[in-house]
Simulated scan of single mutants.
Amino acid sequence: MAQEFKALLVEQPEKKVFTRNIVTRSVDDLPEGDLLVRVHYSSLNFKDALSAVGNPGVTRNFPHTPGIDAAGEVVECSDGSFTPGDKVIVTSYDLGMETDGGFGQMIRVPSKWAIKLPAGLSLKESMMLGTAGLTAAMSVQELIENGVTPESGPILVTGATGGVGSIAVSILAKAGFSVTAATGKLDETDYLKGLGATDVIERAAVTEGSEKPMMKTKWAGVVDCVGGETLAAVLKSTNYCGTVTCCGLVGSPELAVNVFPFILRGVRLIGIDSVEAPMEPRLKVWQKLASEWKLDNLAAMVDEITLGGLEEKIQAILKGGLKRRALVNLLDS
Score class of each variant (00 low, 15 high):
residue 119 A to D: 15
residue 124 K to H: 15
residue 194 G to D: 04
residue 170 S to N: 11
residue 120 G to L: 14
residue 155 I to T: 03
residue 170 S to C: 11
residue 178 S to L: 09
residue 129 L to H: 07
residue 165 G to C: 04
residue 146 N to K: 15
residue 198 T to Q: 13
residue 182 A to D: 12
residue 197 A to V: 00
residue 184 G to I: 02
residue 129 L to N: 02
residue 177 F to P: 02
residue 128 M to D: 08
residue 130 G to Q: 03
residue 162 G to D: 05
residue 172 L to N: 06
residue 177 F to H: 03
residue 196 G to Y: 03
residue 177 F to N: 02
residue 182 A to H: 14
residue 148 V to M: 01
residue 129 L to R: 01
residue 137 A to D: 08
residue 195 L to Y: 04
residue 131 T to P: 13
residue 129 L to S: 07
residue 160 A to R: 04
residue 196 G to Q: 04
residue 115 I to W: 10
residue 126 S to A: 15
residue 139 S to E: 13
residue 135 T to Q: 09
residue 121 L to F: 09
residue 204 A to M: 14
residue 121 L to G: 07
residue 182 A to R: 06
residue 136 A to S: 12
residue 127 M to F: 10
residue 195 L to G: 01
residue 168 A to Q: 07
residue 131 T to C: 11
residue 179 V to T: 05
residue 143 L to C: 04
residue 139 S to V: 11
residue 132 A to K: 02
residue 124 K to N: 09
residue 111 S to P: 07
residue 184 G to P: 13
residue 177 F to K: 02
residue 133 G to V: 04
residue 152 S to Q: 01
residue 192 L to A: 01
residue 115 I to M: 14
residue 139 S to W: 13
residue 185 K to D: 11
residue 142 E to N: 15
residue 169 V to K: 03
residue 129 L to F: 07
residue 126 S to F: 07
residue 134 L to P: 05
residue 114 A to E: 10
residue 152 S to M: 03
residue 171 I to G: 06
residue 183 T to L: 02
residue 183 T to D: 05
residue 131 T to H: 09
residue 190 D to K: 04
residue 124 K to R: 15
residue 121 L to D: 08
residue 135 T to C: 11
residue 133 G to R: 05
residue 202 E to F: 08
residue 160 A to G: 10
residue 111 S to R: 10
residue 117 L to P: 08
residue 120 G to W: 13
residue 181 A to E: 04
residue 129 L to K: 07
residue 131 T to S: 14
residue 157 V to Q: 04
residue 172 L to P: 01
residue 152 S to W: 06
residue 171 I to R: 05
residue 126 S to W: 11
residue 197 A to W: 01
residue 148 V to Q: 03
residue 200 V to A: 00
residue 133 G to S: 06
residue 174 K to D: 05
residue 133 G to L: 01
residue 178 S to M: 11
residue 123 L to H: 10
residue 193 K to E: 05
residue 147 G to K: 03
residue 159 G to S: 09
residue 127 M to A: 13
residue 135 T to M: 10
residue 201 I to S: 02
residue 205 A to Y: 02
residue 130 G to C: 08
residue 158 T to A: 09
residue 162 G to K: 06
residue 133 G to T: 06
residue 129 L to W: 01
residue 151 E to P: 08
residue 167 I to F: 11
residue 111 S to Q: 10
residue 203 R to S: 15
residue 155 I to D: 00
residue 138 M to N: 13
residue 201 I to T: 06
residue 114 A to H: 06
residue 153 G to E: 01
residue 208 E to P: 09
residue 161 T to V: 12
residue 152 S to V: 03
residue 202 E to Q: 12
residue 124 K to F: 13
residue 175 A to S: 11
residue 153 G to S: 02
residue 203 R to Y: 14
residue 207 T to L: 11
residue 118 P to G: 12
residue 117 L to R: 11
residue 123 L to E: 14
residue 164 V to E: 14
residue 162 G to L: 06
residue 150 P to A: 00
residue 168 A to D: 12
residue 117 L to I: 11
residue 144 I to S: 01
residue 195 L to W: 06
residue 138 M to G: 14
residue 201 I to E: 08
residue 112 K to E: 15
residue 177 F to T: 08
residue 144 I to Y: 07
residue 138 M to D: 14
